[in-house]
Design a protein around this nucleic acid. Structure first.
Lengths: 150, 150
DNA sequence: CGCCATTGCGCAATAT
DNA sequence: CATATTGCGCAATGGC
């Protein structure tokens, strides 16, 4: 479980790999050192003959290469960490929303209850009007025991 | 994408790799073929010739090995797919909860409005009682302009 | 052109 | 012993 290490080569498409280099050596052999790069679509493989200086091969020994690799490895680690972090945040968001939801449901329950109480009061009052109360004003329309919901 | 076989080596701990080969050739050399496995025990390096059956080396050419690798690769793909799926589900869950939340908030708004209307009616009625109405029954409690909030 | 970020992939160690 | 997970490096590719 640590990192850094060593070598190898590949052939076909890109599924290659290996690590390499470490301070303390262990220099097993190296093998080709130049590897065809890019599997490309239907491209065949290495053009038989030449390749000026920078053809389609990669010198796995070059400092350039190693540096590039190391940088990419860092980038990859960083990116993955970020990704993981985001996933975790999302999970947290879910819990947060769930809590918020419960809070809202509770509030709804409360409001509903209050409404129900008030409506009952209205009904009761309407009954009172019908049973025990008489309008006093000059307008007779008030004698109407009218109670409607919502 | 394709698979099967091939190369490379390693040294220190594990960070190796490579893929295998391909039907059509590309037979770059092979190098060691036997790789020390596990940092663990103090195995030396590859014994030039044989290795009984199971010493601390891995024959990267063995069918056993290749089969094992292939199975693991499948498992890995499967696992990653599953993982991705789960992450996506979580995201979906977030949106779902957000919608639910909006729905609840709307409902709260509505209920609050209704309550407010009813309370206003109560107040108005209470004023009517005070201004134009007189209780007729034997019960005096009806004359009470009582309105309390929340 | 190069650089960093993402992403798919295989390997190997380890967890289940 | 087999599969599932996980950390890691490589290479291709996308975006700047």
């Amino acid at each position: 479980m640590s990192k850094t290490s060593q070598q190898n080569s590949a052939a076909d498409a890109h599924g290659v790999s290996v690590i390499h280099s470490q301070p303390h050596g262990s220099g097993l052999q190296q093998v080709p050192q130049l590897v065809p790069v890019s599997p490309g679509g239907g491209g065949k493989a290495v053009p038989p003959s030449k390749q000026g200086k920078k053809n389609s091969f990669v010198d796995r020994n070059s400092d350039e290469y190693r540096q590039r690799r190391e940088r990419n490895n860092m980038a990859v680690k960083k990116s993955r960490l970020k990704s993981k972090q985001k996933a975790q945040d999302t999970l947290q968001r879910v819990n947060q929303l769930k809590e918020e939801n419960e809070r809202l449901e509770a509030k709804i329950k409360l409001l509903t209850k209050e409404l129900s109480v008030l409506k009952d009061l209205f009904l009761e009052h309407a009954h009172n009007l019908a049973d025990n109360v008489q309008p006093v004003g000059t307008d007779a329309s008030a004698a109407n025991p009218d109670s409607k919901g919502q």
